[in-house]
Design a binder for these strands. Sequence first.
RNA 1: GCCGGCGUGGCGGAAUCGGUAGACGCACUCGACUCAAAAUCGAGCGGGAGACCGUAAGGGUUCGAGUCCCUUCGCCGGCACCA
Length: 827
Amino acid sequence: MTTNDTTPDTHAPEPRSARYNPHAFEQAWQERWEAAGLYTFDENAPGEKHYALTMFPYPSGNLHIGHWYAYCVPDARARWMRMRGHNVLFPMGFDAFGLPAENAAIKRGVDPRGWTYDNIASMTTQFRRMGTMIDWSRRFATCDPEYYRWNQWFFVQFFKRGLAYKKESFVNWDPVDQTVLANEQVVDGRGERSGALVERRLMSQWHFKITEYAEELLDFGGTDMPERVRLMQTNWIGKSVGAEIDFPTPAGTETVFSTRPDTVMGATFLVLAPEHAKVRELTTDEQRAEVEAYVEAAGRLSEIDRQAEGREKTGVFTGSFATHPVTGHQLPIWIADYVLVTYGTGSIMAVPGHDQRDFEFATKFGLEIREVVRAEGGEPFVPTTPEETLTGDGVLVNSGPLDGMRGGKGHIGPVIEKLAELGVARPRTTYRLRDWLLSRQRYWGTPIPIVYCEQHGAQPVPEDQLPIPLPSDVEFLPTGQSPLKLHPTWKNTTCPVCGGPAERDTDTMDTFVDSSWYMYRFASPRFEGGPWDPVKARELMPIDLYTGGIEHAILHLLYSRFWTKAARDMGLTDANEPFRALRNQGIILGEDNEKMSKSRGNVVDPDDLVREYGADTVRTYLMFIAPWEIGGPWSPSGINGPAKWLGRVWSLYFDEPQGPAENVTEAELRYAVHSTLKRVTGDFERLSFNTIVAALMELTNTLVKAKRAGVRGTPAWDEALRLFNLMLAPIVPHIAEEIWTQRGGEASVHVQAWPDADESALVRSTVTIAVQVSGKLRGQIEVGADATKDEIIAAARAEETVARFLDGRETVKEIYVPGRIVNIVVK
RNA sequence: GCCGGCGUGGCGGAAUCGGUAGACGCACUCGACUCAAAAUCGAGCGGGAGACCGUAAGGGUUCGAGUCCCUUCGCCGGCACCA
């Protein structure tokens, strides 16, 4: 919209539309709404409460188009809920701890605290341009001491309840980010953030006992999540039902876990993970050199190498034998890295006849293969390839006391009972889920509130000494150690038990701790008596509609579900789940259909778009571009559609119509308006934003025609303009408010009630019925709404084209679907 | 390998319960306005001369299938030596 100075004799070039200029009022409205406190949540206001929340952002410093997609689309929905009479809370905060701040400190010497708060300030400004109904009065950042203090408080409570504990184990070490990571943060053997191959290190680290809730986390009863997320969580938790079976060995009884205890009589050897505690004791002197070399080699392999697809089995014999608990046979005990120390008991009974992996191992090392499950009515059979192993159902054979019983995954119950009678096995359920490793060897996070005393070991910091603030006078050197460890004095403290000298834990918490309970904090963001005011949180929680990206399916979402259950068991909340419903938005890709990135040069900057088109157009295009839960590529020309549409909306209200006269009756107008209202209402309900915009565009086309048809000035016309204005409000809040005000509307369009469709306007005197002959569309008829089936079929038969296809043919059947279609089947 | 999802014009997509496929837009073409262009307004826009053919391919159920069932192909996502 540049001014053409060189042609003073003609009018200056018109803006995109004749008069629609969003820059004339968008920011002004944002400021007026803010000053009037229009969107400030009041828990005492009337209306059923509705808590809408979108996953809060990391303050990277710049709002990108993905943020707009994530926040302004749910904003439209929250605005609509408000117009429907709900008392809506739509708050915003910042997930402000994490590595980028610290990396900026290392690279550019800036203070992570200042960097973060500066970013929060500038992003908040950018956020305001979006025109959302965010209640900024409740804003907080997780790096506020008033917030992370409660992380520490929770840690202490968890510690006292046995939900936080320290253990030494093999952990994922990210060599780029220089910290350990939780299992959830390792994807394909690489750090989720850095992309670096993680290393296995034996370290002593703090964990939260999420496994205590494994079974409850599998129950999604109280929470409506997309199937995809439920599946991912279910897979991640990985429940396996089976039995544990005891095998006496020279180093005491070794218990193995099996989901196929029915095949116990086919077990011909045991396999232990290389890291298994009994390896040393079970290794005979002759085998020692070989075993030690193997264990060492296995330890050097990365997780990804070790689990590489199609990798040939490796292993080594310990020299010892276990006793089969039923037959008393001696079974060789092997070590192999295909057995994982972290799952089950770290050891297995190998049944090469009925397990592909065990078969591969047995054939490579010449171990015995026994058939104990036989297909119904089958012949004796020993497999010669891994694919031939019978892993499905069958009858147990060569199985002594189990002979004749049914075998297979679904039939283990009776077998376990029998084995239990023999005293060799017990039912057992295991989970793939591991406890949540939360220690991080980094600075910019919540200090772990534990001190170590030579006398009294690990002691929690007393609650009245919280928060333990992060010191600001630290040096950031990329040494791979926490800056807190290098600080000269910070770690020195006293033991809360004896008062003697003690050292603080120098690790900080995983930032997923911060986001596990922030949704509760919004209920009472300045509360000082606890993480949240239980009375206020009880009214607000759970979140009614939680939205965010799918990438958190097994990270944030699983952790926050765990946290809610733990908090419930501490009496802090009644909620069983943190959110009633979850929906994931899709991703806006670059024009080239690739993920937006600076290196690809396909990034679209929302600030530029707002400058060119205004916020309402950007909001509309994001809603219109694709189904919100799918997303798709940004089209630079596509935004012209919404931009033109809002220009048409503007001139509908304020300009003289141009174009040829049309013929639209008041009844048709009312039908169009009220049927659109009904559609839009239903589409808001099911979060179908793209079809809402389409419906409003369609209505605009009808209204433009109607305006030329001379219905102006009629009650139907006034009603249409008013209802359309209300329908615009949640989608395009600025132009809707401007229209409302210019038309003399009272207060704000955003405090108006969402109208109900008038059903009587939807009743039509005539209906159009499609006519098929033998399933092929042949014509249309217009009939009275109260016409009977016989009348309609008669009319259909009389229709010219239809009659042609009926001519000389015998009618087999006549079908009439009321209001829709007639199908005359002929021979 | 296992589990799940998706496949509709040149493009984004619509069709909510098995009932007129392609709504609504983008792009494009033509026309009006203009000295001209932009903007705006109007018309057209799946393929085919047509009978007809068309929702990844093939088959099935049905009066009727984008929608339901089976097979195949392709793409995307999750899990993957988890005993």
